[in-house]
Write a protein that binds this DNA or RNA. Structure first.
Lengths: 106, 106
DNA sequence: AGTAAATATCGACTTTTCTCGATTTATCGA
DNA sequence: TCGATAAATCGAGAAAAGTCGATATTTACT
């Protein structure tokens, strides 16, 4: 994790900020599938799949897919592929590292 | 201080990030005037004046002036006007508040 | 092999940001 | 009051980001 322009560019968009927040409490935020399904995805698959985030965001699939990889590229998200699905989750270690860096290095 | 798109947009530019860093240790970073002058500006005037930041940045005066007011608008900088000069300094309280918010609310 | 589904990538157009030079505003000193 | 200086604001053209629909890739299931 490091403080640079790319990182803050990723955060400089309301939808990408929203995605980070949704993934903080997905059982509450992701409503296109049941709460049980969300819990299963998070614990067994390691995240939320793209289509459920697309539904929540209300933007084109291509746009959301790009946003997710942008957030992964700068270390704020991580993902696991299981078959056809890619599951995205927050990279909590990097989010905490970022907070520390802002406190000390910004 | 609050986490929003505007704040991160302000941080999503290398020159604006640089300005924040320069103002962290201006005696070392600001070299268009003497070290004693920098110390005097910081302690007696409450910051570094625009023209010295313009020289350091190497961009047009209008651009840097805009950047400084952008950074002030989102709470990362504060300023004092003394006569013809406006002196900018970091808003350390808000920077620490931001770090805390990222650790807890992002 | 062939089809279908989920995601990723591409190309194009729109919107926003960057950046400048010119101008305006504010303040000082003669 | 006039001229000079510092900073802020304005308008315009260039560069970057946002966004979409179409297409490609990957994987699963017959």
């Amino acid at each position: 994790m490091e403080i640079n322009e790319k990182l803050f560019k990723a955060l400089a968009n309301q939808t990408r900020l929203d995605i980070l927040q949704w993934l903080k409490d997905p059982e509450k935020e992701i409503t296109s599938v049941s709460c049980e399904t969300v819990r299963y995805m998070m614990t067994e698959k390691g995240g939320i799949c793209v289509q459920d985030i697309v539904k929540k965001a209300g933007l084109a699939q291509s746009t959301v897919s790009k946003y997710l990889s942008d957030l992964q590229d700068c270390g704020l998200l991580e993902s696991e592929r299981h078959g056809k699905w890619t599951y995205y989750r927050r990279n909590e270690a990097n989010l905490q590292a970022l907070a520390k860096l802002i406190a000390t290095a910004l």
